[in-house]
Design a protein around this nucleic acid. Structure first.
Lengths: 202, 202
DNA sequence: GCTAGCCGTTAACGCCCACTAACCTTCCCT
DNA sequence: AGGGAAGGTTAGTGGGCGTTAACGGCTAGC
Protein backbone atom coordinates (compact mmCIF):
# COMPACT_ATOMS: atom_id res chain seq x y z
CA UNK A 1 0.00 0.00 0.00
CA UNK A 2 2.77 2.47 0.92
CA UNK A 3 5.48 3.24 -1.60
CA UNK A 4 9.08 2.52 -0.66
CA UNK A 5 10.47 4.95 -3.23
CA UNK A 6 9.94 8.03 -1.03
CA UNK A 7 13.14 9.52 0.43
CA UNK A 8 13.91 8.86 4.06
CA UNK A 9 13.66 12.38 5.55
CA UNK A 10 10.17 12.97 4.16
CA UNK A 11 8.95 9.76 5.72
CA UNK A 12 10.64 10.66 8.98
CA UNK A 13 8.83 13.98 9.11
CA UNK A 14 5.52 12.32 8.32
CA UNK A 15 5.95 9.95 11.20
CA UNK A 16 7.09 12.71 13.49
CA UNK A 17 3.92 14.59 12.65
CA UNK A 18 1.78 11.52 13.28
CA UNK A 19 3.45 10.78 16.60
CA UNK A 20 3.29 14.39 17.76
CA UNK A 21 -0.31 14.71 16.64
CA UNK A 22 -1.23 11.62 18.65
CA UNK A 23 0.15 13.19 21.82
CA UNK A 24 -1.41 16.58 21.24
CA UNK A 25 -4.78 15.21 20.15
CA UNK A 26 -4.82 12.96 23.21
CA UNK A 27 -4.15 15.91 25.50
CA UNK A 28 -6.46 18.53 24.04
CA UNK A 29 -8.65 16.77 21.52
CA UNK A 30 -8.56 17.05 17.74
CA UNK A 31 -10.38 20.38 17.67
CA UNK A 32 -8.29 21.68 20.52
CA UNK A 33 -5.08 21.48 18.49
CA UNK A 34 -4.50 23.90 15.63
CA UNK A 35 -2.22 23.14 12.71
CA UNK A 36 -0.01 25.93 14.00
CA UNK A 37 0.25 24.12 17.35
CA UNK A 38 1.00 20.86 15.64
CA UNK A 39 3.62 22.39 13.40
CA UNK A 40 5.26 24.19 16.30
CA UNK A 41 5.46 20.97 18.30
CA UNK A 42 7.27 19.40 15.35
CA UNK A 43 9.83 22.20 15.18
CA UNK A 44 8.39 23.60 11.96
CA UNK A 45 5.66 26.13 11.83
CA UNK A 46 2.14 26.23 10.53
CA UNK A 47 1.37 25.20 7.00
CA UNK A 48 4.48 23.05 6.54
CA UNK A 49 2.12 20.24 7.41
CA UNK A 50 0.52 20.49 3.99
CA UNK A 51 3.75 19.30 2.36
CA UNK A 52 3.06 15.92 3.99
CA UNK A 53 -0.68 15.66 4.44
CA UNK A 54 -3.59 16.84 2.35
CA UNK A 55 -5.37 18.30 5.36
CA UNK A 56 -5.56 18.25 9.13
CA UNK A 57 -8.32 15.67 8.82
CA UNK A 58 -5.98 13.45 6.83
CA UNK A 59 -3.56 13.30 9.75
CA UNK A 60 -6.28 12.02 12.02
CA UNK A 61 -7.54 9.65 9.35
CA UNK A 62 -4.17 8.03 8.75
CA UNK A 63 -3.60 7.74 12.48
CA UNK A 64 -6.89 6.03 13.26
CA UNK A 65 -6.97 3.79 10.23
CA UNK A 66 -3.51 2.50 10.97
CA UNK A 67 -4.41 1.83 14.62
CA UNK A 68 -7.47 -0.10 13.57
CA UNK A 69 -5.53 -2.12 11.03
CA UNK A 70 -2.85 -2.88 13.57
CA UNK A 71 -5.35 -4.07 16.16
CA UNK A 72 -7.28 -6.23 13.72
CA UNK A 73 -4.17 -7.82 12.23
CA UNK A 74 -2.66 -8.43 15.66
CA UNK A 75 -5.89 -9.89 16.99
CA UNK A 76 -6.31 -12.28 14.09
CA UNK A 77 -2.70 -13.32 14.42
CA UNK A 78 -3.01 -14.11 18.13
CA UNK A 79 -6.17 -16.10 17.61
CA UNK A 80 -4.60 -18.10 14.78
CA UNK A 81 -1.64 -18.97 16.97
CA UNK A 82 -3.75 -19.87 19.99
CA UNK A 83 -4.63 -23.28 21.30
CA UNK A 84 -8.37 -23.18 21.80
CA UNK A 85 -10.73 -20.34 22.76
CA UNK A 86 -9.57 -19.87 26.37
CA UNK A 87 -5.99 -19.53 25.22
CA UNK A 88 -7.11 -17.22 22.42
CA UNK A 89 -8.93 -14.92 24.83
CA UNK A 90 -5.87 -14.80 27.07
CA UNK A 91 -3.70 -13.96 24.08
CA UNK A 92 -6.11 -11.25 22.95
CA UNK A 93 -6.12 -9.75 26.41
CA UNK A 94 -2.33 -9.73 26.58
CA UNK A 95 -2.10 -8.21 23.12
CA UNK A 96 -4.58 -5.47 23.85
CA UNK A 97 -3.12 -4.69 27.25
CA UNK A 98 0.34 -4.34 25.72
CA UNK A 99 -0.98 -2.03 23.05
CA UNK A 100 -2.86 0.12 25.55
CA UNK A 101 0.19 0.42 27.77
CA UNK A 102 2.49 1.20 24.86
CA UNK A 103 0.23 3.65 23.07
CA UNK A 104 -2.05 5.36 25.57
CA UNK A 105 -2.34 8.43 23.37
CA UNK A 106 -3.64 6.41 20.44
CA UNK A 107 -6.19 4.75 22.68
CA UNK A 108 -7.48 8.10 23.83
CA UNK A 109 -7.67 9.60 20.37
CA UNK A 110 -9.29 6.56 18.86
CA UNK A 111 -12.33 6.61 21.03
CA UNK A 112 -12.62 10.33 21.53
CA UNK A 113 -12.03 11.78 18.08
CA UNK A 114 -13.52 9.10 15.89
CA UNK A 115 -16.46 11.40 15.16
CA UNK A 116 -14.12 14.06 13.79
CA UNK A 117 -13.01 11.82 10.94
CA UNK A 118 -14.08 12.63 7.39
CA UNK A 119 -16.88 10.32 6.30
CA UNK A 120 -14.82 7.93 4.23
CA UNK A 121 -12.18 7.28 6.85
CA UNK A 122 -14.81 7.09 9.56
CA UNK A 123 -16.56 4.29 7.72
CA UNK A 124 -13.30 2.48 7.12
CA UNK A 125 -12.36 2.64 10.80
CA UNK A 126 -15.81 1.49 11.77
CA UNK A 127 -15.56 -1.58 9.58
CA UNK A 128 -12.13 -2.44 10.95
CA UNK A 129 -13.26 -1.96 14.54
CA UNK A 130 -16.31 -4.12 14.04
CA UNK A 131 -14.10 -6.83 12.61
CA UNK A 132 -11.80 -6.58 15.62
CA UNK A 133 -14.73 -6.78 18.00
CA UNK A 134 -15.92 -9.82 16.09
CA UNK A 135 -12.55 -11.51 16.51
CA UNK A 136 -13.00 -11.24 20.25
CA UNK A 137 -16.69 -12.02 20.23
CA UNK A 138 -16.20 -15.24 18.27
CA UNK A 139 -13.74 -16.56 20.84
CA UNK A 140 -16.03 -15.56 23.68
CA UNK A 141 -18.91 -17.42 22.08
CA UNK A 142 -16.72 -20.47 21.59
CA UNK A 143 -15.88 -20.28 25.26
CA UNK A 144 -19.45 -19.90 26.47
CA UNK A 145 -21.91 -21.41 24.05
CA UNK A 146 -24.83 -19.79 25.84
CA UNK A 147 -23.57 -16.35 24.86
CA UNK A 148 -25.53 -14.57 22.13
CA UNK A 149 -24.03 -12.46 19.36
CA UNK A 150 -25.00 -9.16 20.96
CA UNK A 151 -23.92 -10.20 24.44
CA UNK A 152 -20.55 -11.40 23.16
CA UNK A 153 -19.95 -8.10 21.41
CA UNK A 154 -20.98 -6.18 24.49
CA UNK A 155 -18.59 -8.28 26.55
CA UNK A 156 -15.78 -7.50 24.11
CA UNK A 157 -16.54 -3.79 24.34
CA UNK A 158 -16.56 -4.04 28.10
CA UNK A 159 -13.16 -5.68 28.06
CA UNK A 160 -11.82 -2.92 25.79
CA UNK A 161 -13.19 -0.35 28.17
CA UNK A 162 -11.54 -2.04 31.10
CA UNK A 163 -8.15 -2.28 29.42
CA UNK A 164 -8.40 1.13 27.80
CA UNK A 165 -8.80 2.72 31.22
CA UNK A 166 -5.00 2.77 31.37
CA UNK A 167 -4.64 6.40 30.28
CA UNK A 168 -6.95 7.46 33.12
CA UNK A 169 -4.92 5.90 35.88
CA UNK A 170 -1.44 5.03 34.62
CA UNK A 171 0.35 5.72 37.86
CA UNK A 172 1.56 2.30 38.88
CA UNK A 173 4.53 0.73 37.13
CA UNK A 174 4.04 -0.74 33.70
CA UNK A 175 4.52 -4.32 34.85
CA UNK A 176 2.07 -4.00 37.71
CA UNK A 177 -0.48 -2.37 35.43
CA UNK A 178 -0.01 -5.12 32.87
CA UNK A 179 -0.66 -7.80 35.46
CA UNK A 180 -3.57 -6.00 37.05
CA UNK A 181 -5.39 -5.24 33.81
CA UNK A 182 -4.79 -8.66 32.30
CA UNK A 183 -6.00 -10.39 35.45
CA UNK A 184 -9.09 -8.21 35.73
CA UNK A 185 -9.94 -8.61 32.05
CA UNK A 186 -9.52 -12.37 32.16
CA UNK A 187 -11.69 -12.67 35.24
CA UNK A 188 -14.33 -10.40 33.70
CA UNK A 189 -14.37 -12.59 30.60
CA UNK A 190 -14.45 -15.82 32.54
CA UNK A 191 -11.03 -17.28 31.74
CA UNK A 192 -8.15 -17.95 34.11
CA UNK A 193 -5.24 -15.50 33.73
CA UNK A 194 -2.16 -16.81 31.95
CA UNK A 195 0.58 -16.64 34.65
CA UNK A 196 0.37 -17.67 38.29
CA UNK A 197 -1.35 -14.43 39.34
CA UNK A 198 -4.96 -15.33 40.02
CA UNK A 199 -5.64 -13.14 43.04
CA UNK A 200 -5.94 -9.39 42.68
CA UNK A 201 -3.04 -8.66 44.93
CA UNK A 202 -0.77 -10.72 42.68
CA UNK B 1 -26.35 27.35 46.11
CA UNK B 2 -29.17 27.79 43.54
CA UNK B 3 -31.92 30.30 44.21
CA UNK B 4 -35.45 28.99 44.49
CA UNK B 5 -36.96 32.35 43.61
CA UNK B 6 -36.50 31.86 39.86
CA UNK B 7 -39.75 31.30 37.95
CA UNK B 8 -40.54 27.80 36.76
CA UNK B 9 -40.26 28.27 32.97
CA UNK B 10 -36.71 29.65 33.22
CA UNK B 11 -35.62 26.61 35.16
CA UNK B 12 -37.31 24.36 32.64
CA UNK B 13 -35.43 26.02 29.77
CA UNK B 14 -32.15 25.70 31.63
CA UNK B 15 -32.66 22.01 32.10
CA UNK B 16 -33.78 21.59 28.53
CA UNK B 17 -30.55 23.23 27.42
CA UNK B 18 -28.49 21.00 29.69
CA UNK B 19 -30.23 17.84 28.52
CA UNK B 20 -30.01 18.80 24.86
CA UNK B 21 -26.38 19.82 25.22
CA UNK B 22 -25.56 16.45 26.75
CA UNK B 23 -26.97 14.65 23.72
CA UNK B 24 -25.30 16.92 21.18
CA UNK B 25 -21.95 17.03 22.95
CA UNK B 26 -22.00 13.25 23.20
CA UNK B 27 -22.65 12.91 19.48
CA UNK B 28 -20.27 15.50 18.08
CA UNK B 29 -18.09 16.62 20.94
CA UNK B 30 -18.10 19.97 22.73
CA UNK B 31 -16.21 21.78 19.99
CA UNK B 32 -18.32 20.12 17.32
CA UNK B 33 -21.49 21.80 18.57
CA UNK B 34 -22.00 25.52 18.07
CA UNK B 35 -24.24 27.64 20.26
CA UNK B 36 -26.43 28.08 17.19
CA UNK B 37 -26.78 24.30 16.90
CA UNK B 38 -27.57 24.01 20.56
CA UNK B 39 -30.13 26.79 20.45
CA UNK B 40 -31.78 25.35 17.36
CA UNK B 41 -32.07 21.94 18.99
CA UNK B 42 -33.87 23.63 21.88
CA UNK B 43 -36.36 25.35 19.61
CA UNK B 44 -34.86 28.78 20.19
CA UNK B 45 -32.08 30.19 18.16
CA UNK B 46 -28.53 31.26 18.77
CA UNK B 47 -27.72 33.66 21.54
CA UNK B 48 -30.87 32.96 23.57
CA UNK B 49 -28.58 30.65 25.48
CA UNK B 50 -26.91 33.63 27.12
CA UNK B 51 -30.11 34.42 28.97
CA UNK B 52 -29.55 31.22 30.94
CA UNK B 53 -25.80 30.62 30.96
CA UNK B 54 -22.86 32.95 31.11
CA UNK B 55 -21.07 31.14 28.31
CA UNK B 56 -20.94 27.95 26.32
CA UNK B 57 -18.24 26.74 28.69
CA UNK B 58 -20.59 27.30 31.61
CA UNK B 59 -23.06 24.81 30.14
CA UNK B 60 -20.40 22.15 30.03
CA UNK B 61 -19.16 23.09 33.47
CA UNK B 62 -22.55 22.82 35.12
CA UNK B 63 -23.17 19.53 33.38
CA UNK B 64 -19.94 17.89 34.43
CA UNK B 65 -19.87 19.26 37.95
CA UNK B 66 -23.37 18.01 38.59
CA UNK B 67 -22.54 14.56 37.23
CA UNK B 68 -19.51 14.34 39.45
CA UNK B 69 -21.46 15.47 42.50
CA UNK B 70 -24.19 12.98 41.75
CA UNK B 71 -21.75 10.10 41.41
CA UNK B 72 -19.86 10.97 44.56
CA UNK B 73 -22.98 11.46 46.66
CA UNK B 74 -24.54 8.26 45.32
CA UNK B 75 -21.38 6.30 45.88
CA UNK B 76 -20.98 7.46 49.46
CA UNK B 77 -24.61 6.71 50.13
CA UNK B 78 -24.36 3.16 48.83
CA UNK B 79 -21.25 2.45 50.83
CA UNK B 80 -22.83 3.82 53.99
CA UNK B 81 -25.84 1.58 53.53
CA UNK B 82 -23.77 -1.50 52.70
CA UNK B 83 -23.03 -4.46 54.91
CA UNK B 84 -19.28 -4.92 54.59
CA UNK B 85 -16.86 -4.27 51.72
CA UNK B 86 -18.06 -7.03 49.39
CA UNK B 87 -21.62 -5.81 49.66
CA UNK B 88 -20.39 -2.23 49.22
CA UNK B 89 -18.56 -3.09 46.00
CA UNK B 90 -21.65 -4.86 44.66
CA UNK B 91 -23.75 -1.83 45.53
CA UNK B 92 -21.27 0.53 43.88
CA UNK B 93 -21.27 -1.59 40.75
CA UNK B 94 -25.06 -1.64 40.60
CA UNK B 95 -25.20 2.09 41.15
CA UNK B 96 -22.65 2.89 38.50
CA UNK B 97 -24.15 0.46 35.99
CA UNK B 98 -27.58 2.01 36.46
CA UNK B 99 -26.15 5.47 35.95
CA UNK B 100 -24.28 4.46 32.82
CA UNK B 101 -27.35 2.82 31.34
CA UNK B 102 -29.60 5.74 32.20
CA UNK B 103 -27.25 8.50 31.11
CA UNK B 104 -24.97 7.25 28.36
CA UNK B 105 -24.58 10.75 26.94
CA UNK B 106 -23.29 12.12 30.22
CA UNK B 107 -20.80 9.27 30.45
CA UNK B 108 -19.46 10.05 27.01
CA UNK B 109 -19.19 13.78 27.60
CA UNK B 110 -17.61 13.39 30.99
CA UNK B 111 -14.59 11.51 29.82
CA UNK B 112 -14.26 13.08 26.42
CA UNK B 113 -14.75 16.78 27.03
CA UNK B 114 -13.29 17.15 30.48
CA UNK B 115 -10.30 18.94 28.97
CA UNK B 116 -12.57 21.57 27.43
CA UNK B 117 -13.67 22.80 30.83
CA UNK B 118 -12.54 26.20 32.08
CA UNK B 119 -9.76 25.82 34.63
CA UNK B 120 -11.83 26.35 37.74
CA UNK B 121 -14.53 23.84 36.85
CA UNK B 122 -11.94 21.39 35.61
CA UNK B 123 -10.25 21.41 38.98
CA UNK B 124 -13.54 21.04 40.78
CA UNK B 125 -14.52 18.05 38.68
CA UNK B 126 -11.10 16.53 39.18
CA UNK B 127 -11.39 16.75 42.94
CA UNK B 128 -14.86 15.22 42.90
CA UNK B 129 -13.79 12.41 40.59
CA UNK B 130 -10.77 11.61 42.73
CA UNK B 131 -13.02 11.43 45.73
CA UNK B 132 -15.36 9.08 43.91
CA UNK B 133 -12.46 6.89 42.84
CA UNK B 134 -11.33 6.85 46.45
CA UNK B 135 -14.75 5.68 47.62
CA UNK B 136 -14.34 2.66 45.38
CA UNK B 137 -10.67 2.16 46.11
CA UNK B 138 -11.21 2.12 49.87
CA UNK B 139 -13.72 -0.70 49.58
CA UNK B 140 -11.45 -2.62 47.24
CA UNK B 141 -8.60 -2.32 49.71
CA UNK B 142 -10.84 -3.48 52.52
CA UNK B 143 -11.74 -6.47 50.39
CA UNK B 144 -8.18 -7.36 49.46
CA UNK B 145 -5.73 -6.19 52.08
CA UNK B 146 -2.80 -6.91 49.77
CA UNK B 147 -3.95 -4.22 47.38
CA UNK B 148 -1.92 -1.02 47.38
CA UNK B 149 -3.33 2.49 47.04
CA UNK B 150 -2.31 2.87 43.42
CA UNK B 151 -3.45 -0.59 42.43
CA UNK B 152 -6.82 -0.08 44.07
CA UNK B 153 -7.33 3.17 42.21
CA UNK B 154 -6.31 1.57 38.95
CA UNK B 155 -8.77 -1.23 39.60
CA UNK B 156 -11.53 1.31 40.21
CA UNK B 157 -10.68 3.08 36.96
CA UNK B 158 -10.72 -0.25 35.17
CA UNK B 159 -14.16 -0.99 36.54
CA UNK B 160 -15.39 2.42 35.38
CA UNK B 161 -13.98 1.75 31.95
CA UNK B 162 -15.73 -1.58 31.80
CA UNK B 163 -19.10 -0.21 32.85
CA UNK B 164 -18.75 2.96 30.83
CA UNK B 165 -18.36 0.92 27.68
CA UNK B 166 -22.15 0.91 27.49
CA UNK B 167 -22.42 3.76 24.98
CA UNK B 168 -20.11 1.88 22.61
CA UNK B 169 -22.21 -1.25 22.43
CA UNK B 170 -25.68 -0.57 23.83
CA UNK B 171 -27.50 -2.87 21.46
CA UNK B 172 -28.81 -5.54 23.81
CA UNK B 173 -31.80 -4.82 26.03
CA UNK B 174 -31.30 -2.73 29.10
CA UNK B 175 -31.89 -5.59 31.52
CA UNK B 176 -29.46 -7.91 29.75
CA UNK B 177 -26.85 -5.17 29.63
CA UNK B 178 -27.36 -4.46 33.31
CA UNK B 179 -26.80 -8.08 34.21
CA UNK B 180 -23.87 -8.53 31.87
CA UNK B 181 -21.99 -5.43 32.98
CA UNK B 182 -22.65 -5.95 36.67
CA UNK B 183 -21.52 -9.57 36.48
CA UNK B 184 -18.37 -8.73 34.53
CA UNK B 185 -17.49 -5.85 36.83
CA UNK B 186 -18.00 -7.93 39.95
CA UNK B 187 -15.87 -10.75 38.60
CA UNK B 188 -13.17 -8.31 37.53
CA UNK B 189 -13.14 -6.85 41.02
CA UNK B 190 -13.18 -10.22 42.74
CA UNK B 191 -16.62 -10.25 44.34
CA UNK B 192 -19.55 -12.52 43.60
CA UNK B 193 -22.39 -10.83 41.70
CA UNK B 194 -25.48 -9.99 43.72
CA UNK B 195 -28.28 -12.06 42.11
CA UNK B 196 -28.22 -15.69 41.04
CA UNK B 197 -26.47 -14.90 37.74
CA UNK B 198 -22.87 -15.97 38.16
CA UNK B 199 -22.18 -17.39 34.73
CA UNK B 200 -21.74 -15.08 31.76
CA UNK B 201 -24.65 -16.54 29.84
CA UNK B 202 -26.95 -15.53 32.71
C1' DG C 1 26.70 24.74 -13.18
C1' DC C 2 22.07 24.79 -14.11
C1' DT C 3 17.61 22.98 -13.25
C1' DA C 4 14.01 20.41 -10.67
C1' DG C 5 11.81 19.24 -6.96
C1' DC C 6 11.50 18.75 -2.00
C1' DC C 7 10.67 21.23 2.06
C1' DG C 8 10.28 25.06 4.38
C1' DT C 9 8.92 30.09 5.07
C1' DT C 10 5.50 34.35 5.64
C1' DA C 11 1.30 36.71 4.14
C1' DA C 12 -3.24 36.64 3.24
C1' DC C 13 -8.00 34.95 2.58
C1' DG C 14 -12.38 33.37 4.06
C1' DC C 15 -15.14 31.06 7.11
C1' DC C 16 -17.10 29.93 11.34
C1' DC C 17 -18.03 30.77 15.86
C1' DA C 18 -18.58 32.72 20.61
C1' DC C 19 -20.23 36.61 22.25
C1' DT C 20 -22.40 41.51 22.48
C1' DA C 21 -25.68 45.18 21.33
C1' DA C 22 -29.99 46.84 20.59
C1' DC C 23 -34.52 46.10 20.43
C1' DC C 24 -39.15 43.81 21.14
C1' DT C 25 -42.90 41.14 23.45
C1' DT C 26 -45.13 39.05 27.41
C1' DC C 27 -46.53 38.86 31.78
C1' DC C 28 -46.37 39.43 36.65
C1' DC C 29 -46.67 42.58 40.49
C1' DT C 30 -48.04 46.63 42.93
C1' DA D 1 -53.07 50.41 34.45
C1' DG D 2 -48.40 50.52 33.94
C1' DG D 3 -43.53 49.48 34.67
C1' DG D 4 -39.91 46.33 34.76
C1' DA D 5 -37.85 42.05 34.52
C1' DA D 6 -37.53 37.71 31.90
C1' DG D 7 -36.65 35.70 27.73
C1' DG D 8 -36.76 36.09 23.07
C1' DT D 9 -35.17 38.21 18.32
C1' DT D 10 -31.71 39.86 14.50
C1' DA D 11 -27.46 42.26 13.28
C1' DG D 12 -22.82 42.90 14.05
C1' DT D 13 -17.93 42.21 15.74
C1' DG D 14 -13.61 40.26 16.68
C1' DG D 15 -10.70 36.52 16.76
C1' DG D 16 -9.05 32.04 15.58
C1' DC D 17 -8.41 28.48 12.40
C1' DG D 18 -7.86 25.70 8.11
C1' DT D 19 -6.19 26.41 3.88
C1' DT D 20 -3.93 28.57 -0.15
C1' DA D 21 -0.55 31.59 -2.51
C1' DA D 22 3.79 33.10 -3.48
C1' DC D 23 8.24 32.69 -2.71
C1' DG D 24 13.15 30.95 -1.31
C1' DG D 25 17.05 27.82 -0.11
C1' DC D 26 19.17 22.96 -0.50
C1' DT D 27 20.30 19.02 -2.64
C1' DA D 28 20.76 15.90 -6.65
C1' DG D 29 21.36 14.61 -11.43
C1' DC D 30 22.42 15.61 -16.26
Amino acid sequence: MTSDAAPAPARARREQILATAAELFAERGFHGVSVADLGAACGVSGPALYKHFASKDAVLAEMLVSISEHLLAGGEERVAAADGPADAVRALVDFHVAFALDQPALIVVQDRDWASLPAEARERVRVLQRAYVEVWAAQLRALDTGLGAEASRAAAHAAFGLVNSTPHSARASRERMRELLAAMACRALGVAPAPAQVEMSG
